[in-house]
Design a protein around this nucleic acid. Structure first.
Lengths: 235, 235
DNA sequence: CTTTAAAGGACCGCCCACGGCCCATTAACC
DNA sequence: GGTTAATGGGCCGTGGGCGGTCCTTTAAAG
């Protein structure tokens, strides 16, 4: 039995307790911009059902996010839990980063993102999917430094959705959270942002034009850009 | 908020209770050939620690696998839990397959497997990694119809390991379990098997030769083969 | 102004899972 | 042949998470 394979298979069955995992999932929705600023989360009862977790646990998780300044709850009909316009700054984290973790997440991201771009370009997208992609691209292109991370994530998720595989979309969201945790430790510069926007346009054009090879290639260059940024700053 | 993205993010936080997930994980190790026939699982105490689950739960899971005929436990020093030489036939499952699930898993598999093959070919493998790959290839090529599924899975896992990313390896193992559940419903024919062996050799050669493009292309053709098989039988 | 429905807020009893501990068994070693 | 260490087997008290139920608040609808 290979030691690496067994390490991959005998990893922990759960990343944390129900509360922690629920917090993490809701954080994904907020941080990746799936629920936009000012937007409302699904009602607690619905979240409870969809996340497969008791409502008590959902409430505790929401309470934690509320205390941290991410969301705010309002009672009464037409109430709910709303995403704050301005998100709290994230803790810088410890300076040391595991080189193996970096290699792992960057490799995974490369595979997933180039794969979604290619798959998206291979499908014949519905009109609403095409519009959704274009909208996400536009919103990312006009974002300022503060909003950029969320809108960028939202665009990459839109591309993943265009692949037509929910499992792929989930995987992209998960790896994006890991990448974001790393990106929090390096500065975001305007030139990088401009360059990203150009690449985004190329990728979306290729997808909408049904050109898988170009979509993959463009996405590869795009992820390689942030990858080398991370490698440079963290090593 | 896109309905697809929220479906991906607000999916259940846990696939089942601790017992069920532990059974699933141990089944992976057995069914995917990570622990070969006659081989010994790690001791219960170690499994408990690595899986992040209490020893009671591990024991209940092992008991379930034992009852199902997958493994056998022996007490005393140098005892342990051993994988049976002949695995029980799997239940056929219900005839109806969700078309969306099929599309989802095949798309995910294509992206992951072609990605791992490419990444593996891009790395400079250590001598023991190269040997491991060759061994897995040889064992798959000499397998008979009964053993083929396990050895094939083992080879694909070996390729995934060669990518150097444990996350990727885990993802490949997970999607392989889903694919296997589908493959159980269609017959395995010798011609398909021969064709697979030829493709396996091409893939491994490309990886060992450091040719990412060929590795990806060969793996793409390989997965497309089983994909069209599945689509044909199940639709 | 009253009604109503939908949302958050709070509590209770139950059970699964955990940690910890000790027992029983077995093959190697001296 | 006794000793030893590693392994599976089993038990018990505790706590987290669950399902269920009811209360409170709120804005739209009438």
């Amino acid at each position: 039995m290979s030691v690496q394979a067994s390490a991959a298979l005998f990893r922990p069955v759960r990343a944390g307790n129900a509360f922690e995992e629920t917090v993490e999932r809701l954080l994904q929705a907020v941080r990746l911009g799936v629920v936009e600023a000012g937007g409302r989360l699904p009602p607690e009862r619905e979240l409870s059902e969809r996340l497969g977790v008791s409502r008590v646990t959902v409430r505790e998780a929401i309470r934690a996010l509320s205390d941290a300044g991410y969301v705010e709850s309002r009672r009464g009909r037409y109430g709910g839990t709303f995403v704050n316009a301005v998100l709290p700054p994230k803790p810088a984290g410890d300076g040391v980063i595991d080189a193996e973790e970096l290699q792992d997440v960057l490799c995974l991201r490369h595979v997933l993102e180039t794969g979604t771009a290619e798959q998206a370009a291979m499908r014949s997208l519905m009109p609403d999917e095409r519009r959704h992609l274009k909208d996400a691209l536009t919103e990312a292109s006009v974002a300022d430094l503060d909003d950029y991370r969320r809108r960028d994530a939202r665009l990459h998720l839109a591309i993943a959705e265009s692949s037509g595989s929910t499992s792929l979309t989930s995987a992209v969201a998960d790896v994006r959270m890991r990448v974001d945790a790393l990106l929090d430790r390096i500065p975001l510069l305007q030139p990088n942002l401009d360059h990203s926007n150009t690449q985004h346009a190329t990728i979306v054009d290729a997808i909408l034009g049904g050109d898988p090879a170009t979509a993959r290639q463009a996405m590869a260059e795009h992820t390689e850009g942030t990858a080398s940024l991370l490698r440079g700053f963290l090593r």
